[in-house]
Computed example of a mutant assay.
Amino acid sequence: MNEDCLKITTYFGERKRVGRQLVADALLDLYERHDIAASILLRGVEGFGLKHNLRTDTSLTLSEDLPAAAIAVDTRERIEAIRDEVALASGSGLVTLERARLQTGILTPMALPEELHEATKLTVYLGRQERIYRMPAYAAVCDLLYRRGIAGASVLLGVDGTAYGQRERAQFVGRNAEVPVMVIAVGDGETIGRVLPELGGLLDRPLTTLERVRICKRDGELIETPHRLPGTDELGMQLWQKLMIHTFESQLHRGQPINRAITRRLRSAGSSGATTFRCIWGFHGNHEPHGDRPFQLGRQVPTVTVVIDTPERISAAFSVIDELTEEHGLVTSEMVPAMYTTVGEQSRGSLRLARHHF
Rank of each mutant, 00 (worst) to 15 (best):
T9I: 11
T123R: 12
E211H: 03
V301D: 14
F12K: 02
T325L: 09
A274W: 00
A316M: 08
E14S: 05
G200M: 02
L145W: 00
P257W: 06
H227E: 15
R348W: 14
S271C: 11
S90Y: 03
A81T: 04
D219W: 05
M182T: 12
I184K: 13
R33K: 15
T341H: 04
V141N: 05
H356R: 12
R352W: 08
A316Y: 00
G344A: 12
Q166A: 10
I314W: 04
I106H: 03
L235T: 14
P180R: 02
L6I: 01
Q166K: 05
Y146L: 01
D204M: 12
A38R: 08
G200W: 01
L60M: 08
L157T: 13
F12N: 03
H52A: 15
H52T: 09
I71M: 10
R99Y: 02
F48L: 13
L54M: 14
R260M: 11
S319D: 11
G270Q: 11
R147V: 05
D292P: 04
V186I: 15
E80L: 14
R76A: 08
I184A: 10
L102V: 10
T56D: 10
T276A: 12
T225K: 07
G220K: 07
F277I: 06
Q241L: 04
L330E: 03
M135H: 13
V304L: 15
N176E: 07
Q21E: 07
A170C: 01
P337R: 08
V23W: 01
A317W: 00
S63I: 05
H357G: 13
L145F: 02
Q251P: 02
L222E: 13
H290Y: 08
V195S: 10
R148Q: 13
A89E: 08
R348N: 10
V173K: 13
G273T: 04
E85T: 04
D84M: 09
L196T: 07
P311H: 03
R83D: 01
T96D: 09
T104F: 01
R313E: 09
N2E: 11
P294R: 04
R212H: 04
T325C: 15
L6Q: 02
G285Q: 05
T247L: 03
E288A: 09
C279F: 00
E3V: 03
R212L: 00
S39M: 03
V124K: 01
L145C: 08
A274D: 02
E77H: 13
G273W: 01
A24I: 01
R218E: 09
S350Q: 03
L27F: 06
V304S: 07
Q103N: 07
N286R: 12
Q296W: 02
L102M: 12
L97V: 12
R355M: 06
L42P: 03
G298K: 10
D57S: 10
E77L: 05
E178L: 12
V124D: 03
L252Y: 01
T58L: 13
L266Q: 11
E130C: 08
V86E: 05
V213M: 04
S154I: 15
L30Y: 02
H356T: 07
F248N: 03
P230S: 10
L27Q: 09
D29H: 11
S272T: 15
V306D: 01
L156C: 04
A274Q: 02
E32I: 00
